[in-house]
Amino acid sequence: MSQLEVKGLNKHWGDARAVNDVSFTIEPGEFVALLGPSGCGKSTTLKMIAGLEEPTSGSIHLNGRDLTHLPPGKRGLAMVFQSYALFPHLSVAENIVFGLRARRVAIEEQNRRLRQVTELVDLGAQLHKKPGQLSGGQCQRVALARAVVAEAPLCLMDEPLSNLDAKLRNEMRAELRSLQQRLGMTVLYVTHDQVEAMSMADRILLLNEGKVVQNGTPETLYGAPESTFVARFIGNPPMNLMQKDAQHLGVRPEHVRVDPKGVPAHVMHCDYHGADTIIDAVLPHLNQQTIKLRLPGHQQLPQGRELGLSWDRHHEHHFCLQSGQRLNPVFASPTLTPDETETHHVA
């Protein structure tokens, strides 16, 4: 049986539809990322699952139990907040067992779980400090420990790493993922950072304007984006989308290579990133549209330098010009004729 089941969830504020008919399920032990740009409704969705926001319509079931209208405390969920929401007047230990005390768990059990969890997140020396005396990364661990100690069937995380600096964020990402896998936690993780979603999640729910635009593994979202929105959102730099033959032709910068026999182009701008260089080039045969390509190492090409560019047919993505929907089936095969692709046109 699926662990969490969200069906037809809606949240409207007046005419504004913050969340519009969102449905998905999460299996036990799965790490699902709710990804999207700011204002796409991902936090609102999370809050409705947590019970902090009342849905306009729709239902939320956890292990077959209807949670839709239960108060937050009765749902048995754990949550990590973006601000950590640590109680500033309580010590780290008191913060961690706050929920256990509120639920009147026996003292011995509280202490046993506290010991266990402090070992897991490596907080032993900090137990008697107040949150104000901790660094950002340590606060993050306390928030995580408070969520883990509840042993809840589902743990919600609302951009938990976004207040950390880049280096720490990378470390915590790996740590969080390994903790989740060791404990077999079921996690719904809200983020606007595609790198977090791609690197940690088993599955990504990409939201835009309150709707789920694609639900799939990171590889699927990267390899077969269902619309131009997904294509532009996933990948850095984003996929090149060029208008060609009444379609959008999409090619990822990393799939474009320099090939003297390929499409002629000339260099506009080079952006050196260390391990590789992103080159912006203009395609004179394609209405002067620009294309980005990724070349390894330091490639400082002069502006206007003539290049030939090519890519494999199976790296092409085709999208409808009007609706932006994907036209070719998953991983277009090079033998596909234009007539066949038209049958998938859903404009």
């Binding site: 019970g51 937050p72 754990a78 706050f98 929920g99 509120a102």
Partner: peptide, 28 residues
């Protein structure tokens, strides 16, 4: 902070527990 109260609510703290453990000390 609203978040503190959301966190307390999720942890299953009732109104009295929230007042005694959260609001009252923070209002000291």
């Amino acid at each position: 902070s609203r978040d503190l109260y959301d966190a307390a609510a999720l942890e299953g703290a009732g109104r009295w527990h929230t007042f005694r453990r959260l609001t009252w000390p923070l209002l000291m």
